[in-house]
Computed example of a mutant assay.
Amino acid sequence: MKRRNFLRAAVIGAGVTAFGNTLSRSALAAPAQNGPSPYGPLQPADANGIQLPAGFTSRVIARSGRRVAGTGYTWHAAPDGGAVFADGEGPTAGWIYVSNSEITPGGGAGAVRFDASGAITDAYRVLDGTRQNCAGGAMPWRTWLSCEEIDGGYVYECDPNGPASKAVRRPAMGRFKHEAAAADPVRKVVYLTEDVSDGCFYRFVPTTWGDLSAGTLQVLVAGSATSGTFRWATVPDPDGSPTPTRRQVSGAKRFNGGEGLHYANDTAWFTTKGDNRVWQLDLTRDTYELAYDDSLVDPGQPPLTGVDNVTGSSYGDLYVAEDGGNMEICVITPDDIVAPFLRIVGHDRSEICGPAFTPAGDRLYFSSQRGTSGWSSGGITYEVRGPFRT
Rank of each mutant, 00 (worst) to 15 (best):
C134S: 06
W209S: 13
Y263Q: 14
G70C: 04
N34I: 05
G55K: 08
F357R: 08
M139V: 02
W144I: 01
G306L: 01
V219K: 13
V60M: 09
T381W: 03
G210H: 05
F255H: 09
W209K: 10
Y97K: 08
R4W: 07
F204H: 08
V331L: 03
P140I: 12
G88L: 04
T229M: 01
E383A: 07
T245F: 04
A18P: 13
T267I: 10
W141M: 05
Y292D: 03
E149H: 11
V11H: 13
A264H: 07
P299E: 08
A172F: 04
T358Q: 05
T245C: 15
G118C: 03
R59A: 11
S295T: 15
A29K: 11
L23I: 15
G15F: 05
G13M: 10
V186A: 08
G371I: 01
P334M: 01
M327E: 10
D184T: 13
F230K: 01
G13H: 13
V16T: 11
V168K: 06
S58C: 06
S241C: 12
F341A: 04
G260T: 13
Y292Q: 02
A45I: 11
S64Q: 05
T57G: 11
G386M: 15
A167W: 00
E148Y: 01
P163L: 08
V307G: 05
G223H: 08
R8D: 12
N309H: 06
P163I: 06
K188P: 12
A83K: 12
A77K: 13
T216Y: 08
P41L: 06
A172T: 13
A339K: 04
R343K: 09
L212S: 02
P359E: 06
G152I: 09
A252W: 01
I96G: 06
A109F: 00
Y154M: 13
R349Y: 10
N161G: 13
